[in-house]
Amino acid sequence: MSELLQFLFSGLTVGAVYALVALGFTIIYNASDVVNFAQGEFVMLGGMITWFAHAAGLPLPLAALIAIVATAALGVAINKLAIEPARGAPVVSLIIITIGASVFLQGAAQLVFDKQIHSFPAFSGDTPLRIGGATIQPQSLWVIGGALLVFVGLWLFFTRTLLGRAVLATSNNRLAAQLVGINTNFVMTLSFALSAGIGALAGVLATPITLTAYNVGIGFALKGFAGAMLGGMGNPKGALAGGFLIGLIEALTAGYLSSTYKEAAAFVVILLVLFFMPQGLFGRKSTERV
């Protein structure tokens, strides 16, 4: 029993990171119909920049803030320089562009930082908390709490603020949104900033547990996407639930089946979802216009 609880704790921890990545996917997907494969690199950058700034002597909170702001700015730059110029391009071109951005950011991180594995201290120490015979790191609570907080924040933003509603309107119908005077370019910029910032936050929160390196992004992207898809592409609630589910599936696979192949769990989930419920758990049917 305590063993199961232990697996659940670790599943919720990584699941929270995946949920944040999935939320990042969802924000950009809703605003632009683009699936941004560079989403995982935001997580990597969040961790790497924080490590770098912290190692250079800055206090951890400041380093984290710099990482989140810098990553958000990079997200905006990617939108302006690579995605906006290709508006209207076929999906395959957009995939290649965002994958290109992902590979580019990895390459840049290799050069600017290095190829080593890094970490920084946990926010509230390393003394594990005992709950029901299992232990949980204080940092795990930071990660889980962070994911939930971001979700609630996004929910409030999208339902309670004018700006948030403008983003939703744009995602429903870009042209109509333009007609009623919404600046859809600004909405895109905002979405990328938000999405990149959330990704970086995930990196900041998770690095003390998962460690970071220039090449961790693609794994986060894959699992975050699996989570977003499991929940139903474009649905924030689904992204949150899907991300946590992927984390739990991964932890249980590692615990009861094989720790070497826990990475495969996300991929198997993708295939099963595609097979049995392509709309995901909370998805809606889409109709193509002809």
Partner: peptide, 11 residues
Amino acid sequence: YEQLVLGLVMM
């Protein structure tokens, strides 16, 4: 620079 160049070329 391989990854940097590949990514840049793709974009």
